[in-house]
Computed example of a mutant assay.
Amino acid sequence: MGWVHALSRGINRGVEITVGVLAMAMALVTGLQVFFRYGLNHSLFWSEEVGRILLVWITFLGATVAYRRKAHVGIDVAVRRLAPAARRALERFLLGLSGVFFVVLIAYGLRFIRFIAHQKTAALGLPMGLPYTVIPLSGVVFLIHAVSLALESEKPPSS
């Protein structure tokens, strides 16, 4: 099952790069909007919409990176007091529960995209499904990471 870990690591690396590029694009668009509005007294009609879409993509994809790194905020006072076997069992249970949520994220994300497929964004006229594609996409990435983390948790702790 080493291929699952390699897939998870590879996808995570690609997502990290993508998030970095999206963040730079968002900073550029926001900077341009400020310059045009206050320097040239002319507003870019599309900049707020693009900035909002980029922020949503950065948020969802960034969350998958944090999940892979186990960097999400957590309260583990009680968990740290458990015996190693109980801790691993609880971790597996929570990974399974997370996996169920990720499948729901994928299924309902796709369903929502189909629901709004005929709508267009206000400023640029892009299909509304484009900004929301990140929901099922991030669900797939989350699920791959969850499987990889679950397989890691099956290994006995090294001494």
Score class of each variant (00 low, 15 high):
M1I: 08
G2H: 10
W3M: 05
V4T: 15
H5G: 10
H5P: 01
A6Q: 14
A6L: 10
G10Q: 09
G10H: 08
I11K: 10
V15D: 05
V15H: 06
E16L: 13
I17P: 07
V19I: 12
G20K: 08
G20R: 12
V21D: 12
L22N: 01
A23V: 13
A23G: 13
M26F: 12
V29W: 02
V29I: 10
V29Q: 01
T30S: 10
G31N: 02
L32V: 07
L32K: 00
Q33I: 05
V34S: 03
G39P: 11
G39S: 05
G39L: 02
L40C: 04
N41G: 02
S43A: 15
L44T: 05
L44H: 06
F45L: 07
W46M: 04
S47G: 04
S47N: 09
E48T: 02
V50G: 04
R52N: 08
I53D: 01
L54K: 03
V56P: 02
I58C: 04
I58H: 08
F60V: 09
F60C: 10
R68C: 09
K70Y: 13
K70D: 15
K70R: 13
K70V: 03
K70L: 06
V73M: 14
G74Y: 01
I75H: 05
I75W: 07
D76W: 05
V77M: 12
A78D: 08
A78C: 06
V79Y: 06
R81L: 07
A89G: 01
E91A: 04
F93L: 15
L94M: 14
L97N: 04
L97P: 09
V100M: 11
F102V: 09
V104M: 14
I106T: 03
Y108P: 02
Y108H: 09
Y108M: 07
G109T: 07
L110G: 15
L110P: 03
L110K: 04
R111L: 11
F112D: 09
I113L: 12
I113H: 11
F115S: 05
I116P: 01
A117L: 08
A117E: 13
Q119V: 02
K120E: 06
K120R: 15
A122C: 03
A122H: 04
L124Q: 03
G125S: 02
G125F: 05
P127A: 00
L130T: 01
P131K: 00
Y132M: 05
T133S: 13
V134S: 08
I135Q: 09
L137F: 12
S138C: 11
G139F: 10
F142M: 12
F142H: 11
L143E: 09
I144H: 12
H145E: 08
V147M: 13
S148G: 14
L149T: 08
L149F: 06
A150M: 15
A150L: 15
L151I: 15
E152M: 05
E152F: 07
E152G: 12
S153H: 02
E154P: 01
P156K: 00
P157R: 00
S158F: 14
S159I: 02
S159A: 06
